[in-house]
Design a protein around this nucleic acid. Structure first.
Lengths: 197, 197
DNA sequence: TGAAGCCTAGGACAAGCGTCCTAGGGCTGT
DNA sequence: ACAGCCCTAGGACGCTTGTCCTAGGCTTCA
């Protein structure tokens, strides 16, 4: 029974993984069950067994992204000694995921934008990924001594990253991406220096 | 004949206007001819007379946006005495179009993002709108005396605006939008002061 | 009055979509 | 060997999509 159950979960996981990637690359609306089925080598009609509707699948994908994000933040929590080092971990994902960002933009931003236009009820859930980053960044700025404007600074970093991803993707401009990352790191250093005084 | 021709153009213009707005609000892909037909009070099948394909309609919409953008830039050119005043005109659209941005994000950024995911051939045309702003901003920074890094600064402003629009829309946060506009204006003032020395 | 051309309504069309059903293969435990 | 259950293939369904066609109502000019 445990083998059967785990095998079942494996197929389900494969579906979610494939959907996760395709939703990112092609968008949610224009990714069909047929596309996902072809990736996982499964018959199209059989999806009903695993997910009753396409919205259920979307919810599973976002849930996975939420879990992955939380794991990532926890990892950064241990990697960086100082709060500013942890924030630098966040900024660095622009470099680490450079290739995909140049092709498809930010996975979080593009999904929320699409769901907003579709008036989709899962929009709040998708926005929760943003909120995870926002809350985490706020905590880092608070730890840096910026109690007053920690949330504003967190939103600032989040916004700058969004803009970089959008434009770098539009212009397919790797140089711009790296320039802006440098600028953002400089701005962060300024924050650190300001807080010390 | 002249009346007939102008009436024809009026219907065509109505279609383009409706498509322009709906593509912005709902996205290109999930806006159907039926949606547009309902807005213009026209029979769905008859679109073929005005636009042979949906892609033709999209091209017409983007062409209109290009013309509108050029007119806007020309207007700012006359409004602002100093280059920095003109750049402030650009930044100010975030305030002027606030309501729509909170609901649907940036019209330019969201379209290019969608077309990129759809692998649509009109992507280059859509990106041209970005290029119009970029070139114009670059000229303003050059006029400010920043010959060396004018393009980098132009891209910086463009990127910041994109980020603001994306996040303000995601969080439906008017306060954030205004905060960031203030920050951006402060940054611009810093640029002016730096250039003076 | 009549011919010509612009523009329209309304529907047909094939294709693709999400959804749902049924029959059965291949394990599991008795 | 057999019953029960997990999971699957394959196809049917109703609907919407973009596209395309045809017949005819207008206006315009002779």
């Amino acid at each position: 029974m445990s083998t059967a159950s785990s095998a079942s979960r494996t197929t389900r996981e494969q579906i979610v993984d494939a959907a996760d990637q395709l939703f990112y690359e092609q968008g949610f609306d224009s990714t069909s069950f047929a596309d996902i089925a072809a990736t996982v080598n499964l018959s199209r009609g059989n999806f009903y067994y695993h997910f009753k509707t396409k919205d259920d699948l979307l919810e599973a994908v976002i849930d996975q992204r939420l879990r992955n994000t939380q794991a990532l933040l926890q990892q950064w929590e241990q990697q960086g000694a100082q709060p500013q080092d942890r924030i630098r971990c966040f900024i660095h994902i622009l470099i680490a995921n450079q290739a995909r960002i140049l092709l498809y933009g930010c996975p979080v931003g593009t999904l929320t934008t699409e769901l907003a236009k579709l008036n989709h009820h899962a929009l709040d859930q998708a926005n929760a990924v943003f909120t995870l980053f926002r809350t985490w960044l706020r905590q880092q700025f608070q730890a840096m001594g910026r109690k007053q404007d920690a949330d504003e600074l967190a939103m600032h970093v989040l916004g700058r990253s969004q803009g970089v991803a959008t434009l770098a993707s539009a212009f397919q401009d790797e140089k711009f991406l790296k320039q802006e990352v440098k600028r953002l790191n400089q701005w962060l250093q300024q924050c650190v220096d300001d807080a010390k005084q």
